[in-house]
């Protein structure tokens, strides 16, 4: 699709269908809070079971709030956006591999007690980008990548400063709460703006 007008219409439809309701942000915030709470309580790896639940949560919220108002449309695949997101995942994988390599070459660079939280942050960053690929709009991809970079930056900052890891979890919970609240605000505005429409 080379026509700029058609591309603009497609972007508008994709943004309205997949971003404007704030539901992906609600899901991402919820996921981040649950993950960090589990980590604080020593159940760090159980967050994995929430990953397959994410699409179900997003879809059930959309059935309740989004589709009755603006309808459902399956947005056409846009190769360039997918490529951009895959680059983001690739860079995150490389960062992870580099950290692993540095730790193998000179053991002790990253203290042992920081291994698991660092792995968790890295996995969270990957999942946030994957969520961006799933919801699939240019804006959500940019948001997801910025969020992922934020997660990695916050984690590194804490380890460099040598702060207690619980403080890191509290910051991540605050970050999750910010995503959740901003998503809820978007959802409320969306519900106010669009009345419920019905089929024939």
């Amino acid at each position: 699709m080379k026509d700029p007008l058609l591309e603009q219409v497609q972007n508008d439809v994709a943004t309205e269908q997949q971003y404007r309701d704030g539901i992906p942000r609600i899901a991402a915030g919820f996921f981040l809070i649950i993950t960090m709470l589990l980590q604080m309580n020593g159940n760090g790896n159980t967050f994995v079971m929430f990953v397959p639940l994410m699409p179900t949560i997003i879809e059930s919220l959309r059935k309740r709030f989004t589709y009755p108002r603006i309808g459902y449309a399956k947005v056409r695949d846009r190769g360039s956006m997918r490529k951009y997101s895959l680059w983001a995942v690739g860079i995150l994988l490389l960062v992870g591999a580099a950290v692993f390599f540095i730790n193998q070459v000179s053991p002790g660079t990253i203290p042992q007690e920081n291994h698991q939280p660092l792995l968790l942050m890295w996995a969270t960053a990957i999942i946030v980008v994957l969520l961006g690929i799933m919801v699939f709009t240019s804006r959500s991809n940019i948001m997801a990548t910025l969020n992922a970079m934020g997660v990695v930056a916050i984690a590194n900052r804490f380890f460099v400063l040598g702060l207690h890891r619980d403080a890191l979890y509290v910051v991540m919970i605050a970050f999750g709460a910010f995503l959740l609240l901003s998503g809820l605000y978007s959802l409320l505005s969306f519900v106010k703006e669009y009345p419920v429409l019905t089929d024939e």
Binding site: V9, Q10, V13, R69, I70, G71, A73, K74, L197, D199
Partner: peptide
Amino acid sequence: LYLYVVENADFVYLLHK
């Protein structure tokens, strides 16, 4: 136009657009 930019859509989507 609005059907051209998507794979498929429901009646409510077209009502809205």
